[in-house]
Design a protein around this nucleic acid. Structure first.
Lengths: 190, 190
DNA sequence: CTCACATACTCAACTTGTTGACTAGGTCGA
DNA sequence: TCGACCTAGTCAACAAGTTGAGTATGTGAG
């Protein structure tokens, strides 16, 4: 049920269409919760049926109509209830790690290529999160921001996404070193 | 389909029963892929039907019979094919982060309690991974291990799990500081 | 003038993952 | 000898997540 809660958390910033939510998810919530647009639309329908959000249709010229969703009082209550916990711990669930686990008995070169690709991807993510962070801080020091901002939740979750990707970069680099050195030794043993 | 591949990777160590796999998953693969026993048994049945693994039933006295699964040649090929990639990147998917995102408009005390609990949980995980690491190294230095071990995949994935949980601990500590300080200020503003 | 891309969705089918209950004997401590 | 936990699973139902296609219009680049 956490997609529901993630959507409600995203709607704390104000009303939004499904389409915009999908993009917003991509830009901020995606640090820690990803979903496809289809999943979103389906969930939004259910949430409306459950009275957690309400929709108003906005007619547009030269564009398809859109439905703007906003949190209802019930939605706010549900969300507060959710924040009270408890929350199950999670683990990383990553195909690449499965591949690395099996690398010694698989296609080592292929795994190396995948790690290199992932490293680049993670570096791009880090850069992106850094930009988002700068945007949130908006010139203020972190200390200043934390003291004055209305909400710190989005900042804290951004930090988690940031350090996760930094960690990915470090681990990729380390694994590359280990697997490359090993490959070299296996090619020319002794 | 990654559960399949995770199972095959686990079977690289030799044949195992569903029950033992469930425990092994809990002990090592769980760093990066979790699943319930039910999911495992279902997947094992399908994999057998698909010819990726073969089973032999072992009759036991004083214990229920068990079925030992081992990789077939086809399974090995599939796994090697999988290691060649590509592998989709993942994001953290964590309820606690959803709660932190909404913390400012929710039950801050509840969120703080959840973070404290998570921190302890992550610290326990770190301790456990450290023990697993010491066991893998078995007295050797890391350098020595990486040079001589038959497989390094399990070690590299363990490192990833370890640094993930360390990162969790750090982030929890940081978030607690921020949210507690903030709570104190809101209680006694000015 | 065409082609790709953006807006703003809907529908359907499928695969994965979760939850809870059930079977049935064995072991171990208080 | 009672209750809790271990071994080694099975079955069913449901919730969540993925994939691919389809609809309809508008804008901007080459």
């Amino acid at each position: 049920m956490s997609l529901r809660n993630a959507v409600m958390a995203a709607l704390l910033d104000g009303e939004s269409s499904g389409y915009d939510l999908a993009k917003a998810f991509d830009a901020s919530v995606a640090n820690f919760w990803i979903c496809t647009p289809q999943q979103l639309y389906r969930e939004l329908d259910r949430m409306e049926a459950d009275g957690l959000i309400s929709a108003r249709t906005v007619e547009q010229e030269r564009r398809p109509n859109k439905r703007l969703f906003s949190l209802t009082e019930r939605g706010r209550e549900e969300l507060t209830g959710f924040t009270s916990g408890p929350h199950k711990p999670t683990a990383i669930r990553d195909e690449l790690l499965v591949a690395v686990l099996a690398a010694d008995r698989g296609d080592v070169e292929g795994v190396l290529a995948s790690i290199r690709e992932r490293k680049q991807w993670a570096e791009a993510k880090v850069a992106r999160y850094e930009r988002l962070r700068a945007k949130l801080l908006d010139g203020r020091s972190e200390e200043d921001f934390l003291a004055t901002a209305e909400r710190v939740g989005p900042y804290l979750t951004l930090l988690r996404g940031l350090s996760f990707e930094r960690d990915n970069v470090r681990w990729c680099a380390r694994s590359l070193t280990v697997l490359e050195r090993r490959g070299a030794r296996l090619d020319a043993p002794g």
